[in-house]
Computed example of a mutant assay.
Amino acid sequence: MDFQPTEEQRDLRAGLRDLLSGRYGPEALRAAVDGGAAVDRGLWRELGRAGFFSLRLPEAEGGVGLGLPEAVLLFEEAGRALLPGPLVATHLAAGVVPGAARGTAVVTAFDLGERLVAHLGEADAVLGAPVLPAGEPVRSADPLTPLHRLAVAGDSSAYRGTGALLTAALQVGSASRTLELAVRYAGEREQFGQPIGAFQAVKHLCADMLVRAEVARTAVYAAAVVAAAVAAGPAAGGAGAGEITAAKLLADEAAVRNARDCLQVHGGMGFTWEAEVHLHLKRAWVRAEQWRTAADAEELLAAELLGAGSRAS
Score class of each variant (00 low, 15 high):
P137S: 10
V138P: 06
V138Q: 11
R139D: 09
R139N: 02
S140E: 06
A141I: 07
A141E: 14
A141N: 09
A141M: 07
D142F: 03
D142T: 07
D142C: 13
P143Y: 08
L144W: 03
P146Q: 10
L147Q: 03
L147R: 03
L147A: 09
H148I: 01
H148T: 05
H148Q: 13
L150A: 10
V152M: 07
V152A: 15
A153Y: 08
G154V: 08
D155Q: 14
S156E: 07
S157Y: 11
R160F: 04
G161N: 12
T162N: 05
G163Q: 05
G163I: 02
L165F: 09
L165W: 04
L166F: 06
L166S: 05
L166E: 04
T167A: 12
T167H: 14
L170I: 13
L170T: 06
Q171R: 07
Q171D: 14
V172H: 02
V172K: 06
G173K: 01
G173H: 05
G173N: 05
S174G: 15
S174Q: 15
S174D: 00
A175L: 04
S176C: 09
S176L: 15
R177A: 15
R177V: 01
R177D: 01
R177M: 15
L179W: 07
L179E: 01
E180P: 01
A182M: 04
V183G: 01
V183Q: 11
V183I: 09
Y185L: 13
Y185V: 03
A186V: 02
A186K: 01
G187L: 08
G187V: 07
E188K: 14
E188W: 10
E190W: 08
Q191E: 13
Q191M: 12
G193V: 14
P195M: 09
P195N: 08
I196D: 05
G197A: 09
A198I: 00
Q200I: 02
A201G: 08
A201S: 14
V202T: 13
V202W: 04
K203P: 00
H204N: 12
H204A: 15
H204T: 12
H204K: 14
L205A: 03
C206K: 00
A207I: 01
A207S: 14
D208V: 02
D208R: 11
M209S: 14
L210S: 10
V211N: 08
R212M: 12
R212E: 08
A213Y: 00
E214F: 05
E214R: 15
E214W: 04
E214P: 00
V215D: 12
A216T: 09
R217Q: 15
R217K: 12
R217V: 01
R217G: 03
T218S: 14
A219W: 02
A219F: 02
Y221S: 04
A222M: 06
A222D: 13
A223R: 03
A223Y: 02
A224S: 14
V225S: 00
V225Y: 00
V226W: 00
A227T: 11
A227V: 15
V230N: 01
V230Y: 04
A231H: 03
A231M: 04
A231Y: 00
A232D: 14
A232P: 00
G233T: 09
G233E: 10
P234M: 12
P234T: 10
P234E: 10
A235T: 06
G237F: 09
G237C: 08
G238K: 14
G238E: 13
A239P: 02
A239Q: 15
A239S: 13
A239R: 08
G240Q: 00
G240C: 04
